[in-house]
Design a protein around this nucleic acid. Structure first.
Lengths: 375, 375
DNA sequence: TTGTAAGCGTTATCAT
DNA sequence: ATGATAACGCTTACAA
């Protein structure tokens, strides 16, 4: 592998001069610069980031630690992070924890070994101790999608509470009274917030929550499927399911399909996070959609700002608005409209969600009577 | 940041001894080892990969360069690569070229600067010159999904030809005679192979290909959508579309939906690569499914084998079998079955595809008459 | 404008 | 079994 010394020799200068040219540091005679640049071209020289960062104490790299690289929500976030990072000349180390706390530990160690300049992580609070290793080393960190218990770190999340509230209120407005929720783990703040939003919507509707209808698993389709079977097998009465994220919704779909239940004829389903192209192929699934790309972008910008020397003032708590995307069918075609939800902290009822139902939607005028007697 | 010197000081030994403990190099007194390990624990010491790889001339890192991290096909491959790499103690640098040759150049430079030990790339042959920089530096490389023109490098692909043949034969068997194809760019061997498989299937069926029905774009949903509009607007007659990959298929879906065309009533669609959960939500879309996870796994194992010192014998050309997943609906439920396709190089007709059609499928007994007169 | 020397954190080599 | 020394490729500080 060619090194800076090879280039120096070829150009007939010292290594420092080559370094000056590479880093555009000035104090280089134009003629010298030309010779060096030609040598670099001829040798296809590219500097070693290892050597450079060893010396510089900066790697110009960020880490993004997410639970599931297979999930479009996370890949969209990754794109946002990547774009911002690229803009600033940083590269991104993408780590996939597989919704597995042990892998989270592993990758936290990895990014420390890599000496990345900053970390964006969707944390499991179940291992907050290990998370704090980032703080020990004062590695700038941004939590994305989920807060970290006991660590007041920069945080970028979607508005899970409002989104969940809106989804459940949507169901209530349709006439549903028995609504099950399959949310994520207690250790993810987003999953908690979604259950809280669910409970709040029931409360506002004067519906007494039934504990047996509140289930929690991992944010995985397998868990969504298994928990749906549990719900069905218990002989409980319910007419709608609120899936805590898109992966869980997929599992619910699988389970319902296997039991021969049809959406929305037999049962209604709403979920958090979008599924790309869903509107074209399953036009009944109303979703609370977070601005994933924006979340990634803002998390990265926040982090890069810190790195760029912004005074270490108070931690930011960015909550981006979630939208309620209502889907219904009109004749044979799917329709949808999107309602942005704003958190209005001043009012007591802090969620002025406006749920509009156009005349055309398939269930207009005939809200489900419920409960639908399940096998 | 704590260094090996800090650990050495705390344990009362030299840096070399600490290094020996870390690398389990032997020749360390058990008592000394204990002291060192305790010091490491207490200081939460983790060695710097930059320093280590500078010295070792090995980074224990692979790069995976793929076109679209948003596409489940590629993320599944990434999972395969990651799992194999993890097994061998390697980390993976994931690079997303966005189906953009310029970004490919960029990332090839990046991975050279990073001095990764090996590269797995889904290449654009349009920039073969730049690809060869990897060869210049003898960086072990595996091409995945696509071959590289003029470079006989290790290659792992799915069987695009057979898959395309099977899909089109499937359509022909259903009675279609006017079949359009929207494939990927000329610079991707997979896209070419799929067109070849398409042509071969038509030839076997005695159908004369119509050039106007053969379209090429990027492997992107936007291109799939735009090209579908082109097809529709030209007033051509066709009853089926073969989408060159899943992203293109999504674009086709969007376009057909916007024009009020229904699948499979108005027009049939088949595509390459699967779309997760599709069977549950769009049970009409027959697909040629490549074993993506296996492809990633095998590519990584091949690469890691080379790194592990396997003699640099002749380049491998691994072609993994593609399956035809036939989807149809039975009553209100979606059904599917999967047919593995084997390339039998000995026979003249090297594709003994058996297309079975169970009685229950919705189109059995009533193959589409075609052509369907499009607006 | 250019060059020399030192050091970043680690490990291979060669002592002891 | 342990340690001193040098070197990996690069950039900063200082000198010329």
């Amino acid at each position: 592998m060619t090194t800076i010394a090879d280039v120096a020799r070829r150009a007939g200068v010292s290594k420092v001069t080559v370094s000056r040219v590479i880093n555009d540091a000035g104090n280089v005679h134009p003629a010298t610069r030309d010779r060096v640049e030609r040598a670099i071209q001829e040798l296809h020289y590219l500097p070693s980031v290892a050597a450079r960062s060893l010396r510089n104490k900066r790697t110009n790299a960020l880490a993004l630690i997410v639970p599931d690289i297979t999930n479009p929500f996370w890949t969209t976030i990754a794109r946002g992070v990547e774009d911002a990072a690229h803009e600033w000349g940083y590269s991104v180390l993408l780590c996939n924890t597989d919704e597995n706390p042990e892998k989270q530990r592993h990758y936290i160690d990895v990014v420390i070994r890599q000496r990345v300049d900053g970390v964006i992580i969707a944390p499991y609070s179940s291992d907050a101790d290990h998370l704090k290793r980032l703080r020990e080393r004062s590695i700038p960190t941004v939590a994305i999608d989920r807060r970290i218990d006991g660590w007041d770190v920069d945080t970028v999340t979607g508005d899970s509470f409002s989104g969940a509230y809106a989804l459940v209120r949507h169901l209530v407005d349709l006439g549903h009274r028995w609504i099950a929720v399959i949310s994520g783990p207690q250790t993810a703040s987003s999953a908690q917030d979604r259950v809280l939003g669910y409970l709040y919507a029931l409360e506002k509707a004067g519906i007494k929550p039934d504990e047996r209808l509140i289930l929690r698993g991992e944010f995985r389709s397998t868990d969504g499927e298994a928990l749906t079977y549990e719900l069905l097998d218990q002989g409980l009465q319910f007419t709608a399911i609120f899936a805590g994220n898109n992966a869980i919704a997929m599992g619910v779909l699988t389970a319902l399909g296997n039991r021969g239940l049809h959406i929305p004829k037999d049962i209604s389903l709403v979920c958090f996070d979008d599924i790309p192209y869903l509107s074209h192929i399953l036009p009944f699934l109303t979703a609370a959609v977070q601005p994933a790309y924006e979340m990634g972008l803002q998390a990265a910008q926040l982090l890069l700002g810190r790195l760029g020397g912004t005074a270490q003032d108070t931690p930011a708590r960015i909550v981006l608005p979630t939208s309620l995307v209502v889907r219904y069918s009109c004749g044979s075609r799917g329709q949808q409209f999107s309602l942005p939800l704003f958190e209005k902290s001043s009012s007591e009822d802090k969620l002025p969600v406006q749920t509009l139902f156009p005349e055309e939607q398939h269930y207009a005028g005939e809200p489900l009577a419920g409960p639908f007697p399940l096998v």
